[in-house]
Structure formats: structure tokens, C-alpha cells
Design a binder for these strands. Sequence first.
DNA 1: ACCCTTTTGATAGTGACTATCTTTTTAGTT
DNA 2: AACTAAAAAGATAGTCACTATCAAAAGGGT
Lengths: 211, 211
Amino acid sequence: MKVAGAKPPLSQRKKAQAMRRAQSCALDLFEQRGFASVSMVEIAEQSEVSVASLFRYFGTKEQVVLWDEHDDRIIAAVAAGVERRLTPLAAVASGVAAALEGAFGAKADIERRKMALIFHEPALLAGFRANTSVWSDAFAVMFAKAEGATRPSLSHRASAAAAAVLVQVCLEEWFGRGGRSDLATLIDEAFSSVGRGTPIGSGVDSLPTDQ
Amino acid sequence: MKVAGAKPPLSQRKKAQAMRRAQSCALDLFEQRGFASVSMVEIAEQSEVSVASLFRYFGTKEQVVLWDEHDDRIIAAVAAGVERRLTPLAAVASGVAAALEGAFGAKADIERRKMALIFHEPALLAGFRANTSVWSDAFAVMFAKAEGATRPSLSHRASAAAAAVLVQVCLEEWFGRGGRSDLATLIDEAFSSVGRGTPIGSGVDSLPTDQ
DNA sequence: ACCCTTTTGATAGTGACTATCTTTTTAGTT
DNA sequence: AACTAAAAAGATAGTCACTATCAAAAGGGT
């Protein structure tokens, strides 16, 4: 295991710093004038990072917003849950809740600005939702390994995809409520409503008024 | 109810015809030279539809492939299942199975060519997966209405998103197996493995070897 | 200081997509 | 069948995300 204080090489630190600077400038510009009305050239000029580097770093304009320095924390947290042999959905639920508690702690301001932009710009929302596929694939591999399988089966992929998409739904719900609800509670509610296969009209949380 | 033989206006028929012609030409070209190496101008020349119309019809290059004349059949079939008050997941499972049986019946050749391209080109796969959001939203509204709610609750959206993504997983699995498996069986397997919340390592379909 | 490797910057080019305008086609109406 | 208002299709020019390539400038070890 690595020592916590071990520095990565200078080149990597400078790169990460440039990426943070570029993302921060991009958020400023997008908030002021909208995602479509700001060009990559402007972001480059504002952030003192060349256009070529912007594309090298982020790949696409959307990823300038969507990029998250610590976006592997969720996957790591879920992996820990899987190793504790929780139910697939339970592992994901607890892992995500733990990881996001950290994300919205220290640099909560950046995260909130990102989320606000994402839900305001359809192009960004589409990219945000595409993360589901990445999570899903990662979860599926974990589930397979936990059962000693070399490759994920259909049921592994199914559980993984369901878990990943439920996390997305909860994140959107959470932000839609202004970030005031408890994310862990939302995840719990979403996961259990799927897990128990509630029949439509059974009225577990809202009885039809029969009108 | 409308008479089955009632014709839509001439303009709409010509448009649909042009779209089919354009899609068919596009599939030819993409199969020959790859999605990225064919420009919209070439598709326009080949199909005798102007570039402007291509963008009016399809919006994006990806949608030239992804567009499906009858892609509302799935949603309609699921709506029918919901009205019969099935479980959310059951309604989606049966509806999708029914709808796709039709889709791969008459014009199965086009559908297979589309699927082959979609899974061969990452850009198309991303677009294909984005359909999940559309389905999910539609399902959520159905579930809410079935319970007499005016707007979908979190659990409605959760069930809808899970159902939609499971359909995607099954479609991908189905195509990955060369289209030889029975899609309805796959859907059943996927949905039940999520529904029962199988613990990891419980060994329902493969016991861990404990190594 | 020295080289060697990796990273960054600058430049030119491609093509998806938009905006705008003109021309054609369609659908009623007489 | 001819006339007209409305809608759709075509043509054109422009923007900008993204790629490819090469030159310059770091970084990292000797």
C-alpha cells in the first residue's frame, strides 16, 4: 500500500492543475453565456491551456464539465461492498452513498455548479447519463469475480445495469429536490421499490383514488 | 378508431419513403467503409435526398441509422401491459417481447443490419443506449397514471429506469449471442435475477470455487 | 550540463450541424 | 383545371468541435 503523502511526479501534478483550472474557467463561462455559446477556443484563452491540450485532456467539450478528478471513488467504494458479500444492489447502494458523502463535502461548490449545469443543458445531461454504462460494466465485473466467474453472466450484467441506473435516477432526484434530501435514503427507497416488484396499483406508497 | 387502410397525406408518405431510402443507402455505405468514413454529403448524393433534408429528418448522423419507423410500438405494447395491471417489470417484459417479435418479423433484415452496425461502432452504441432514457420517461408516466398519480414518484421512475435498462441489456445480450436465443427468455431471466435480489455468492447459477 | 522521452503548443484541415433564403411541392378552393 | 396560401425541400455560406501533424518545450534521469 502506498504512503498517503507520496507525491505523484511533477508532470502529473501540473496536468491535474491545468485540468482543474480549465474546468473552473469553463464553468464560469458556461454559467454566464450557456454551454453552446462558449467555444473551446475561449476556454483555452481564459484558462491559459492550449486548445490541443483541452482535447487531449478531456476528449470532448462535454467532458470539460463532466470530468471528475475522483470519479473512481464510487467504483472503489462499491468494490469494497461487494467484497463484504452484500447483495449486488445493497453493495452499490452503500458504496455510492459513502462515496458521495465525501464528494459533496470538501469541494461541494464545484460539484453543485457542475450538477446545475448538467441539468440545465441537455447535451451535458446526455453525457452524464452515459456514465451509467461505465459504472454498469465495472459493477458487472465485480459481481462476476465475487462469484468466481471469469466473465459476467447475463444476471450479473442485469444486476449491474439496474444498480447503476438506479444510482443515476437517485442523483437526478436528489438534485431535483435541491440537494436537501438525504441521498442514502433516496437510494434505499429506489432500490427497495424495484427489489420487491411492487404491482402497479397495489398502493404501497400512494393509493389510487379510484377516480 | 381509425380504419386500417386510411392513408396518411402524400407529403408524409413521400417523407417516410425518403427516410427509408436514405437509411438504406446509409447502411450500405457504413457497412462498406465504416461509420466515420462516410459523410452526410455522400449519403445525400447516393440517396437523392438533400443534405438539408437529412438533417431535418434525422437531426444527427447517428439517427440516420438509429431511426426506427415503428419505434413507438414498444411503448404502446408496454402501455397495454400496464393497463392490464401487471407488475411494472412484468408489463415491460411482456410488452417488449411482443413488440420485438413483430419488429424482427417482416423487415428483420434491416433490423439485423442496424444492430450489427450499432454494436460495431461505439458512437452508434452510445446513441442506442440513450434510448433508455426515452423509454424510462415514458414508462414512468405510465406507472404513475396507473396509480392515479399526476406525476411520477421516485419509485415510479426507479421501476421505469430499471425496466428500461434491463431491456437494453437483454437486447445487447441477445445480439451478442447472434440473435439465436429467445429474447423473451432472456428478459425473463434478467428481470427475475434483479427482482429477487440474489446475494452475491449465493450461487444460484454458479457457485464460487472459494479460491 | 547533458540527452532522451514525454508533454505541450501551433497550424491546417475535415465534416457535422445551423441559419437563412429561394424554389418547389402540396392541399384546398373556386 | 387553374389559383393561391402554406408547407416542405433544396441550395448556400458559415461556425465550431474534433483530428492529424509537426515543432517547441518542458520533465526526469545520467
